[in-house]
Design a binder for these strands. Sequence first.
DNA 1: CTTGTTTACAGACCGGCAGTCGGTATGTAT
DNA 2: ATACATACCGACTGCCGGTCTGTAAACAAG
Lengths: 237, 237
Amino acid sequence: MNTKRHRMAADDRRSAILDAATTLLTDQPWEDVTVAGLLDAAGISKGGFYHHFTSKDDVLAEVVLRLSDASISAGEDSLSRCGGTAVERFSAFLAHSARWELSHAAKIAAIVRMAMMEGNGPLFVKLGEESARRCLPLFKALVRDGVAQDAFCVVDTDLTAELLMHIGRMRWPTFLGARRIFADGQRDAAWRMICDRVRVEEGLTNRLLGLESGTVTFPPLTEYWLVLDAEWQNEAP
Amino acid sequence: MNTKRHRMAADDRRSAILDAATTLLTDQPWEDVTVAGLLDAAGISKGGFYHHFTSKDDVLAEVVLRLSDASISAGEDSLSRCGGTAVERFSAFLAHSARWELSHAAKIAAIVRMAMMEGNGPLFVKLGEESARRCLPLFKALVRDGVAQDAFCVVDTDLTAELLMHIGRMRWPTFLGARRIFADGQRDAAWRMICDRVRVEEGLTNRLLGLESGTVTFPPLTEYWLVLDAEWQNEAP
DNA sequence: CTTGTTTACAGACCGGCAGTCGGTATGTAT
DNA sequence: ATACATACCGACTGCCGGTCTGTAAACAAG
């Protein structure tokens, strides 16, 4: 009773809770996040919490949506805005995505760290499902257009799109690895790791699309310096 | 007290519990499997159970090992037994694996069903990790040898191996899809789905390895008829 | 056949967890 | 002022994973 009763707009309260959950998730696997802890972090009572969410997992689902939405939306509308030939479109899409990712490096790093954390299987799977649900169609469309224009020559549209997405999914975990190496003082090795990764992705992308190496292009390597350069909070110990 | 005390050899008891867990897992996600339920299914008390396992998750870990070990071991020693050129070795490995899989279709199907079940993220992830831990090195070795012999021309050994494994991982989920379609009466469509899948895998494998289509070969399509033909228990409702 | 020791097992018990419920405060419309 | 809706509270419940104390079976030694 001594606790003052803060009444907030439903949406504000929801996002406050979601924020708290996201924060907790940065250094705890979801299994270890308790509703009590979440209540504490969000400054609300159990009754209040269950007025806004139906279950603990309900919160996770929303968190996943919030985490993935920004990046996926960016991809979706970058795609809708690039024209030209299939090859140009593909390269433009790659460039837009890369730039968006690089300018949100800290946030992406945090998400990847969460997803890769021990005991966070559910989060990892849900994020994967969500990105498959929304990103795969993008890649498929891109590939299909190229095939229709006789620009690409793929073995199979769907599997090719899936592999392209799979490659992209493993990019940031690799970047984080480089980042760690960089922090260890092996700066050259770290930078080489990043350059290699990008070059390899470009090579594989062209190969999967049935193109000469260098046809579809990734942004210039120098842009990726941001991966190592950016100041991030919450670095792993 | 009225319960008779069955005293068993430790190993027998362990595997009895593991069997029970595996059975429960066929129609329940791991989250929903309770220790009490497991106790009941295995016919043992709590004290007995915790004498053999340190935790519920300990059981899952063991189950994962048991599920994955047979197939992975088969792969490992089939690899060790095939000689010849890199291309021959690769094809032989593919053939051995395919035949082993096809002759254990029911079991594989059950495992895949478990892993793909809603709310079984942890199982899915753990199985993936285990197969990555043991299968990836196989693929890497295969690819590396081919490159060393100038037989393969890959963009990057490691990523190529990873993609090859990823393709393989998605094979049986696809087969199960075909199986469902088959059960629905669309027999031709189901069979076409399987043939397409195998052809596409073969095409992509050759492309990733930098080979002319048809160089590395999968077993003849007719062998895959077993996917649809075999009598399996526990078909999904 | 005793005795002692180890090992497999039993089941009462515990702390903590997610989720519920009756009730209370804080608006907003009439 | 009255009535209704909505945000919120915290005691409570039921269950679940895990521990603990104790007991019965197997085995070894004398």
